[in-house]
């Protein structure tokens, strides 16, 4: 039997929604973070995400393995990243514009090749029932956590550790902060940026695979509601800090769950405005934490959008 939890149910719904909805945001923002820490911005992750959702679903359906789908999505995403990285290495090419072009291109290719995968049903990614201790079905459902979410959490910690203490992290930070300093240290910024963008693309592809293979768990042309575009905002929001990306993604996911949850307890008018809550919240926090006089703390020095 379901239990009537009153207003508690909103809180449970927001927690559950945050966990369910945040995973793609987490992956795509970690990917964008890697790219931006190398000094480039990739606005095209929306296209990468959608293509990852399609290719992940398609491969999972054809092979019968959801994990094969995730692998395919990450490879496809890395390829988009390489294309972005290589093209942006050509002098005078605008990385923001290339990002928009690749967004279009990725979505176009995904829709082009995705027509035959709209109908079939692919296997789902597994989840772990962390709510086993509770008798309340709502809590059990909310704490049914997908493996990719946990991998994302681990990845954020690993990237944070990598950036702080490893040689790879140091190289990435130097390249992102100053091309000249990197050259003086004998580093070649171009291949490093291409590699960082490729890694970012791979993560965005996995984020897409989560959408199509777990939640909502279906390939349709409306699968993404701008998760890839929002990544750029979330990274600024998280001040280029991987651990903060977790909170940003959870906050955004939780805010997104607010609309349906409020309707389910009878707060029904103005749902469009509730649905806009994540965007209003992000904008408000951006305004509150920005400053016209000092550069944003944590911003890589070579990044075009903060220069």
């Amino acid at each position: 039997m379901e239990t009537d939890l009153g207003l508690w149910s909103i809180l449970i719904a927001i927690v559950g929604g945050a966990i369910r909805v945040s995973t793609p945001f987490l992956f795509v923002s970690l990917g964008e973070l890697l790219t931006e820490r190398s000094g480039r911005i990739n606005l095209g992750l929306e296209g990468t995400l959608v293509f990852g959702a399609m290719s992940g679903y398609g491969v999972a359906y054809l092979t019968g393995s959801a994990w094969a789908g995730v692998a395919a999505a990450s490879v496809a995403g890395a390829m988009f990243g390489v294309v972005h990285g290589v093209i942006c290495s050509i002098p005078r090419v605008n990385d923001i514009a290339i990002g928009i072009a690749l967004m279009l291109f990725g979505m176009g290719l995904a829709f082009f090749f995705g027509k035959r995968f709209i109908q079939p049903v692919a296997p789902y990614l597994p989840s772990i029932p962390f709510g086993w201790w509770s008798d309340i079905p709502q809590i059990r459902a909310a704490l049914d956590v997908n493996v990719l979410f946990l991998i994302g959490l681990g990845l954020a910690l690993v990237i944070s550790w990598m950036l702080r203490t490893t040689r790879v992290g140091l190289i990435l930070r130097v390249v992102g902060d100053s091309t000249d300093a990197a050259r003086a240290m004998g580093l070649r910024p171009v291949p490093i940026r291409i590699a960082a963008t490729a890694a970012g693309g791979a993560l965005a592809g996995i984020g897409g695979a989560y959408l199509s293979l777990y939640y909502p768990g279906s390939w349709t042309e409306g699968i993404s509601s701008g998760q890839g575009l929002m990544a750029v905002a979330l990274v600024i929001f998280a001040r280029w800090n991987p651990v903060a990306c977790i909170w940003a993604a959870l906050l955004f996911g939780g805010a997104g769950a607010l609309g349906p949850a409020l309707q389910s307890v009878g707060i029904t008018s103005g749902y469009y405005l509730f649905y806009a809550a994540p965007y209003v919240l992000t904008l408000g926090l951006l305004i509150a934490t920005s400053s016209p006089t000092r550069a944003m703390s944590g911003a890589p020095g070579e990044l075009s959008i903060t220069k």
Binding site: L43, I96, L229, V232, A233, I236, Y279, T282, L283, L286, I287, S290, S291, P292, T293, M296, I305, T306
Partner: peptide, 11 residues
């Protein structure tokens, strides 16, 4: 306010 216009216009 120093808020990036690409992001704010998208939001």
């Amino acid at each position: 306010r120093g808020v990036n216009e690409t992001i704010s216009s998208l939001l």
